[in-house]
Design a protein around this nucleic acid. Sequence first.
DNA 1: ACCTGAACACCGTTCAAGT
DNA 2: ACCTGAACACCGTTCAAGT
Lengths: 231, 231
Amino acid sequence: MLVHLTGTSLRVVPKTEGARARLNRDVICRAAQELLVAGDAESFSLRALGDHLGVDPTAFYRHFQDKEDLLREVGDRALAPSTKGFVSTDDPADDIRRLCLGVRRALLKNQVALSITSQGPTRHVNELRITEILLDALLRAGLEPKVAALTYHVFIEFTVGSAALDAPLAASAASRRETYQRWRSDYRALPADEYPAISILGPKLYPSSDDVFELGLDALIDRLVIAPKKP
Amino acid sequence: MLVHLTGTSLRVVPKTEGARARLNRDVICRAAQELLVAGDAESFSLRALGDHLGVDPTAFYRHFQDKEDLLREVGDRALAPSTKGFVSTDDPADDIRRLCLGVRRALLKNQVALSITSQGPTRHVNELRITEILLDALLRAGLEPKVAALTYHVFIEFTVGSAALDAPLAASAASRRETYQRWRSDYRALPADEYPAISILGPKLYPSSDDVFELGLDALIDRLVIAPKKP
DNA sequence: ACCTGAACACCGTTCAAGT
DNA sequence: ACCTGAACACCGTTCAAGT
């Protein structure tokens, strides 16, 4: 069969016709991001997305392979603020620190932490930039290749993993304080003879998850980048 | 209203009647664990659980509040091997190391990492034991209460978070090697001028996730427990 | 007391049909 | 070329009915 042009394909399409919400990957991603930032991640569905776009839910399949394909791209777009305008300095340790903090913030805001790592590398530009920045910093810090690769994965697992754990709570920032209050009082109700350490430290548990992340991140940077252990 | 015994409540129930798969939390949890260990986590459903038990799917609701209630208990049971028989020594750093490695192994095997932390503390015995062991070790290591609490959360986030990220791949151990192969070759196909660090380190990425976890865990222990930073 | 089964309000996805 | 809408094969959960 030959591909052939028909007369109609050369017609000029009126702009007014194109104005009514013509779908493409960009407008779909933006609508998905709006829903994810606004509500909780688990109420997101392709049907809700269709509603939000004023379009049949299945129109989506013209532009993405499946839901995962969409979430992966939405996730990558969410990461843009952490790579756009990022400039590496002559302090690789600080570069790593700034990058991981930015990645975490972007993931928490958009509730897409898990979709990022679900199926390995892609050509998605922000994921690749993050990998490049991190690996570059680790090489500049003087790590040998094999150790640099391992260390890269440590930072990714800690950053993305803790974001995945914190995201559900970070979403409802208002209720987080009272949730934590309740959890602490659950600990307080435990028998002190059976759980002595918990009864001492219970009131101090569930601090700011930002503080937790920074403590862990700085420890990893100190030990793995600034003063790596000799083998 | 008074609680009163009726004559029938004293009747001896024939054992043959009890033998036909009478439901309770224990047999339901065991069936769920079997399904989770055998297959992938996302194919688990209450309907599949009902089939496996030879029972209507909704019979489940006589014994658990909802699916999350079940998964939380299944998760806690999965953690039992990491706390049963655990003995703390006079080396708190090593106690932490052994505990976190055991917790990670248990979570990966049962694919229940995320269900553990989804809604804070409970009276589930293994979760509480893990908290107690960890907090106790941190206090014995000489950390002051506030730092000990932060450090506790760092270890939990790193252990559970990385298990949550690794679990989907750990499930299909057979296909993991070839998956990693493909990912590495994806990296190799990238333009070297745009991604110089990736093109150098690409072949070394995606090492054993056990090695990654141990590198990070030991770094955190060194920096936060053995040689904590002075404020 | 405990289980069944119909029913409700959803999912992601496919595919023939429309324009 | 792109969108629609019916349909398929599922979900978790509720509730009246059975025994």
